[in-house]
């Protein structure tokens, strides 16, 4: 820690209201490369509103957002993607009938060289090969990338979806409850992929209600309550009990 590091993502005094409902109040935090940050809070605490602000689904009413030291103002989610932020929303997922490789490259298809490429012909071979390589980098071993996603288990699908985000994100991946609906064993595999993404130097924002998962995989936990940050501390300073107390505000 001798070198002073620049935060890859910084929020300063972000506030957001939906009409009269105040969803976020003066939220500030910094996030660094190679760091997994847990974002926890009760239902309605403002977690989804916060990530929608970061990923450009909507704009904050006030406050500033910096990515890689530059002040940003998103016009659409596409802008945040261009700036290196990939978001895995709660229910968007993958296209089950397409192969793993096709899903990894969905919306970013590689085209053949020359005239065929200009006519929109896909370079499927290269996509399948590169998908395999990139997934391996985050610890996902795909036996055959030609397999369709529908042939995978829930945990495998989620792992591939995170692998996809990790492959395309330059700086930050945001995961909104990626272990929801997954069994214990399958969740474990998802957590492994999160760790692998971190080791690649990405910053991971991990939203989850499953506190043991959050405690296991994160370096730092930010607790939101009624739209405001009530605690931002290294994970080592929390236990399940103290975290639960901070979330509910019943005892600290």
């Amino acid at each position: 820690m001798s070198v002073e590091r620049e935060p890859i993502l910084e929020l300063r005094h972000i506030s957001k209201s939906y009409g009269s409902v105040r969803a976020l109040t003066d939220v500030s935090f910094r996030a660094y490369s190679g760091e997994v940050i847990g974002l926890v809070g009760d239902n309605g605490a403002g977690k989804s509103s916060l990530i929608k602000t970061i990923s450009g689904v909507h704009n904050p009413d006030s406050g500033e957002l910096f990515v890689d030291g530059v002040a940003r103002h998103w016009k659409s989610p596409h802008d945040s993607m261009q700036a290196g932020i990939e978001t895995l929303y709660q229910d968007s997922g993958l296209a089950p009938d397409l192969t793993i490789g096709s899903n990894i490259f969905l919306g970013r298809e590689l085209l053949r060289r020359g005239v065929l490429g200009r006519l929109g012909f896909l370079d499927q071979k290269t996509m399948e090969r590169r998908a395999l390589e990139e997934l391996e980098k985050v610890g996902i071993t795909v036996p055959l990338s030609k397999r369709t996603v529908s042939q995978l288990s829930g945990g495998q699908r989620q792992a591939v979806a995170i692998g996809r985000a990790a492959m395309w994100a330059k700086h930050v991946i945001i995961l909104d409850e990626p272990t929801n609906h997954l069994g214990a064993r399958q969740s474990l595999e998802v957590l492994k992929v999160i760790t692998a993404a971190k080791e690649q130097g990405l910053c991971v924002l991990f939203i989850s209600h499953t506190l043991p998962h959050v405690l296991e995989v994160t370096d730092r936990i930010i607790v939101l309550r009624l739209g405001a940050v009530v605690r931002d501390a290294p994970t080592t300073e929390y236990t399940v009990e103290s975290l639960l107390g901070t979330i509910t505000g019943l005892s600290v």
Binding site: Y89, G93, A95, N103, L106, G107
Partner: peptide, 12 residues
């Protein structure tokens, strides 16, 4: 046809 939400999230 497979998942319009995933397609939209992928920028299509």
């Amino acid at each position: 046809g497979s998942n319009p939400f995933a397609a939209r999230a992928a920028g299509i």
